[in-house]
Design a protein around this nucleic acid. Structure first.
Length: 103
DNA sequence: TGATTGACAGCGT
DNA sequence: CACGCTGCCAATC
């Protein structure tokens, strides 16, 4: 189960600092396929390393929490992000303040 | 091997 | 501003 694509996505996911979030499109771009945002989402959904990969730090391009396969769903995801210090704008993440610039 | 799916993104209405 | 449709990529059935 070692697809280069998934591996890249997981690596980037683990690379996202606490208090920051990345968009699916951003990860897709970093892995080399700026249009593979959907494939990135699929990798998150599969998430073989659930507790190992902090995939909860990945949100939509608009900062909205689109999905979360783990326990609790989107509510839990939002709660975790808040706990890590991510700034929320209602039900969406304030990308203006918490978007990972991939430093 | 082919068709369908899926945690998206962009554009149009 | 909210909703809908299309396009893209890779995985899974």
């Amino acid at each position: 189960m070692s697809s280069l694509f998934f591996d890249r996505v997981y690596s980037l996911c683990a690379r996202i600092p606490i208090g920051k979030v990345a968009t699916y499109h951003q990860l897709a771009k970093l892995v080399g396929s700026p249009r593979a945002s959907r494939a990135v989402g699929m990798a998150m959904k599969k998430n073989p390393n659930a507790p190992t990969i902090p995939c909860h730090r990945v949100v939509a391009s608009d900062g909205a929490l689109t999905g979360y396969s783990a326990q609790g769903g989107l509510a839990q995801k939002k709660h975790m992000l808040l706990q890590e210090g991510v700034v929320f704008m209602g039900e969406k993440v304030d990308l203006t303040a918490s978007l990972w610039k991939n430093e």
